[in-house]
């Protein structure tokens, strides 16, 4: 029996990650860790950037390890960014001060809609059948990649069509909350974990 596959959630210290931990914990052979130190978080088989809190706070928590984290992700560390965690893969955000990881060139902008935040279940427009058809969103900001090449799926809030899933190398970012998107979302998270275990 080989050692367990380690999945580490980088914990910025804001909000709920219980459901995420549970969704990632697929059982035998997988160990889910929480880590508040960004460099220690990289001693892992896969990294998860969770989706709670504000950009500037998360950026500040990353700062000491942002450079190293960027290098590891670009070198192929499997990474799942959820909501704010997806936004952190980009360069910067209109929401606040601080830098993102710059793994994907682009910026984070406010939703161009009357009803902000977007709270609720929205459609994932993609041909990729491994994605949920409908997923739960709770966000005021969205990612705007410099190039469309990284975009895997779009979603539309009012008339604002935005990138709801992006990928670059082994990093994938989702603007929705798979851990709050019922069984289809949990399946998506488990597919990520299974991909790492293989």
């Amino acid at each position: 029996m080989t050692r367990k596959t380690v999945i580490t959630i980088f914990d910025y210290g804001a909000g709920n990650i219980h459901s995420l931990v549970k969704a990632l914990d697929t059982g035998d052979g997988v160990e889910v860790r929480l880590e508040t130190d960004p460099v220690a978080a990289l001693r892992t088989d896969a990294l998860v950037l969770p989706g709670v809190g504000a950009f500037s706070n998360a950026s500040a928590r990353l700062s000491t390890g942002a450079h190293k984290m960027r290098e590891e992700i670009l070198a192929g560390l499997p990474t799942l960014g959820i909501c704010l965690g997806m936004q952190l893969l980009f360069d910067s955000s209109e929401e606040g001060e601080g830098s993102g990881l710059g793994v994907i060139p682009g910026r984070v902008r406010r939703l161009r809609a009357t009803r902000v935040p977007q709270i609720g279940w929205n459609e994932i427009e993609s041909l990729d059948e491994s994605l949920p058809e409908v997923a739960y969103f709770a966000n005021s900001y969205v990612c705007e990649p410099d190039s469309d090449d990284c975009i895997v799926a779009y979603s539309t809030h009012e008339r604002d069509r935005f990138a709801s899933v992006v990928s670059a190398g082994n990093a994938i970012g989702v603007q929705f909350h798979p851990e709050k998107s019922s069984s289809a979302g949990v399946t998506f998270v488990r597919d990520f974990v299974n991909g790492v275990c293989r």
Partner: peptide, 11 residues
Amino acid sequence: VQRTAERLFIP
């Protein structure tokens, strides 16, 4: 709340 969050996958 904690026990619930560990097995509930909706908000």
